[in-house]
Simulated scan of single mutants.
Amino acid sequence: MLNRVLLIGASGFVGTRLIEEIGEERCVNLDKQHSSRYDNITVIQDIRNEGIDAAISHQLSAVVLLAAEHRDDVSPVSLYYDVNVQGTRNVLDAMDKKGIKSIVFTSSVAVYGLNKDNPDEEYPADPFNHYGKSKWQAEEVLREWYQKDPENRSLSIIRPTVIFGEANRGNVYNLLRQIASGKFLMIGKGENKKSMAYVGNVVAFIKYLIDNDRPGYRVFNYVDKPDFNMNKLVSQVRSDLEQNGGLIRIPEVLGMLGGFGFDIVAKATGKKLPISSVRVKKFCATTQFSADKLDASGFQRPYTLEEGLERTLRYEFIENHDDKPVFFTE
């Protein structure tokens, strides 16, 4: 019998690549949105609704929970907790009803907060926003579920740093697009380091956990090393794009003032703008995380960070893929 996996929230960027990685014939996708590539295996359902087990008709060996409310500007903020925490409870209830004992959960390094010193998985949680707080609460719900039957249940938690890759329209893409345009403005000294994760490696790691599943509790940061600081990252991208010339730089304090100005405009107009104080704060923050536990797991990354960047830049700014779907994330 085919060993099927239920992916929840796989109509988006990571999920679409994960279905490709695992194989369409092994997957069932439960999502509140249709899938641009895999709608034939997609069941439309919202995890905020109880009784989602009724939408699961296949015999399944494991669940991968990708669904999350994650944008910076979600309103009302209760949505973070309705989706990320209560939604997780609903998924676990459905798993219990169907006899599914294995789950891979994508959390976030947001549980650590900002400007931490290369935290590993044992570092105390200190989330600074509702997204991070709700992800930590969801982890607690999952750990409570696991502890009820640790000899038979399997819980793997992945805390990825910012994920980038082909066809993604998130913060990393916006940065790459600005650099590619030749109009990039460096805010601050550029010495802050940024941990990053290429989507091709992230989905390969999720598949690795599924294929090597066993009872137990595991938690991993997901980072592709080495960490670049902003100066190195910008230099690498400009080199791949064969750009020359100097950069315009402004102090961080001026960047924050500009961000607050955009916040005021966004609030007055009701429009979501590409620049905000939160995004400037993130840009200037050190977001560096340990990957020692991942490196010791036996998993081999298919791509280096440089290769992931080069593949993304070629797909987005050199080749023509206007006929392909894109995915909007943070």
Rank of each mutant, 00 (worst) to 15 (best):
K116W: 03
L305H: 04
D149K: 07
V237K: 01
V162H: 00
T287C: 11
I163L: 01
Y38N: 06
N115D: 15
V64H: 07
R89V: 10
K189W: 02
F205V: 04
Y81Q: 04
K282M: 06
E307K: 15
E50I: 10
F164N: 01
L247T: 08
S239R: 12
L241Y: 09
D73N: 13
G132V: 09
V278A: 15
V223S: 06
T42A: 03
F228I: 07
L241C: 08
A204L: 06
V265H: 00
G23S: 02
L175A: 10
I187W: 04
V91Y: 07
A197F: 12
Q300N: 14
I179A: 06
P150I: 05
F105D: 01
P127G: 10
D39Q: 15
A138N: 03
E306D: 14
K272Q: 13
K183A: 15
V199Y: 08
K282Q: 13
A266D: 03
Y146F: 15
V14I: 15
A291M: 10
V14C: 02
G259F: 10
G298R: 05
K193A: 13
I210N: 03
Y315I: 07
F328W: 12
I318L: 12
E21T: 11
G258Y: 08
V43T: 13
Q86P: 00
A138D: 06
